[in-house]
């Protein structure tokens, strides 16, 4: 699907071995270095582009990373701005990603956490325990991408009807839905 030199789509496998090599200077660098001090496995890789910092996090650590970032004095990411899914394309592996956009109401900095998922296993632990606003964002991501948030208190479809078939924002879902219509 992608032909350009998109460093984030070609997720470097060796980045996991030494994440510190991937660190580029940014205002958030000390914060991310401190995050790695706590647990080396929390960060798979870091990238800095267009003034935004993206951190790829293994999904089993997402709740720990989020709760740490929410409370750590140098981070204070107390505001979860957004969660959104993305489909990289049917042939891509890993296919799905979940982006968490974090914001600090006191320090005013922003950070993107990213989880990448294979198509066979689309389970992610919920972060509703960290921020309650995650509830609807996760429902929306489940509704449109079929990503399952384990431990979510009320994981139902939110925008589409309950009996809708398929996940509308996946790349293999046709724009006009399945004919004659997508309801059961």
């Amino acid at each position: 699907m992608t032909t350009g030199a998109n460093s984030e789509n070609n997720l470097p496998e060796n980045a996991a071995t030494d994440p510190s090599q991937n660190l580029t200077p940014s205002p958030l660098s000390p914060l991310l270095a401190a995050l790695q001090q706590v647990n080396r496995e929390w960060i798979t890789s870091t990238s800095e582009a267009l003034g935004e910092t993206t951190v790829i996090v293994p999904r089993e650590h997402i709740v720990d990373v989020c709760s740490h970032l929410k409370t750590a004095p140098e981070a204070r990411f107390d505001f979860l701005a957004d969660i959104c899914g993305a489909d990289r394309g049917v042939e891509e592996e890993p296919r799905f990603e979940v982006n968490y956009h974090l914001f600090s109401t006191t320090k005013h900095h922003r950070l993107r956490l990213k989880i990448v998922l294979n198509e066979e296993d689309v389970h992610v632990p919920t972060v509703t325990g960290v921020w309650r606003t995650a509830n609807w964002h996760e429902r929306e991501t489940f509704d449109l991408f079929g990503i399952i948030f384990d431990g979510h208190p009320d994981l139902r479809r939110i925008l589409l009807p309950d009996d809708w078939q398929g996940y509308a924002l996946r790349k293999d879902f046709p724009l006009r839905g399945y004919e004659p219509y997508s309801l059961k």
Partner: peptide, 9 residues
């Protein structure tokens, strides 16, 4: 548009 991703609030 060059490949990449942005979040603009």
């Amino acid at each position: 548009v060059p490949a990449g991703e942005v979040y603009q609030p």
